[in-house]
Design a protein around this nucleic acid. Sequence first.
DNA 1: CCGACCGCCTGCCTGC
DNA 2: TGCAGGCAGGCGGTCG
Length: 292
Amino acid sequence: MPELPEVETVRRGLAPVMEGARIIRVEARRPDLRQPLPRDFVKRLEGQTVTGIGRRAKYLTADLASGDVLLMHLGMSGSFRVSHDDKKATPGEFHHRRGAAAHDHVVFHMSSGATVTFNDPRRFGLMLIVPRNELASHPLMREVGPEPLGNAFDASLLATACRDKKTSLKAALLDQTVVAGLGNIYVCEALHRARLSPKRRASTIAMRTGAPTAKAVALVDAIKAVLNDAIKAGGSSLRDHRQTDGELGYFQHHFRVYDREGEPCVTPGCGGTVKRIVQNGRSTYFCATCQR
DNA sequence: CCGACCGCCTGCCTGC
DNA sequence: TGCAGGCAGGCGGTCG
């Protein structure tokens, strides 16, 4: 369930039970994720105190007292679930379930009494351990672009990144080196909010005479707004995906175009209809009437 | 160098 | 009902 708002929601769910707690035991049940778990995965984690849970783009990080960082990615279908050992299981309560479920690949038993389980049916997720001082230069991190909710991400930064791009605006925003953390849903949503066509050449929002265009300003505002709104809603829950406490996110009810093919455009006075097209092999939802 | 495409893997939904 | 095909929130590798 993994674009920036969902990953940030996971981070906020993991922090209270992991930060300041020690990893008592690790179960590496299935090592063959997108990259295989490192051979010394369990050894480098067990006994370590987690000093902080962070997020960079769609990656989660767990800082360890040893100086290592546990780097995690949810891929397409990864999720975390937190359960509490210290609660008495009353009949019928879900945490009564003790055994591992299908696709539970990694389980962390924490000194806080929490059990943190990583589940990922498609196994596009990954977990690596990287020394803290090598994280920024790690091949997976090195090329990652600016955080869209950071102060540094503004219209001139985005305009500059798009300046020489011959590809579509949709593809440019999905490019994690341009801006980090957007995926298919939030790109569609941000473009609709900014009233910009996903088919427009990315370079057409770039600088004019040294200043960012109004389009770049609108797009940055839309990106920040949709991400903040989604985080407030606990992310989006498509199909069965849930937050770490089992609750559903509810931002999917606020989608304006994503998965709304054929529905009327919600832009006031527009009167258009949401269309679905395919760009770079992936669905794009947009309104051709108000998005230019 | 860039951009388009393929494959990774499983599950679910659709239509025949 | 069964089954094939398409589709899915990501991303790295390859090819032209």
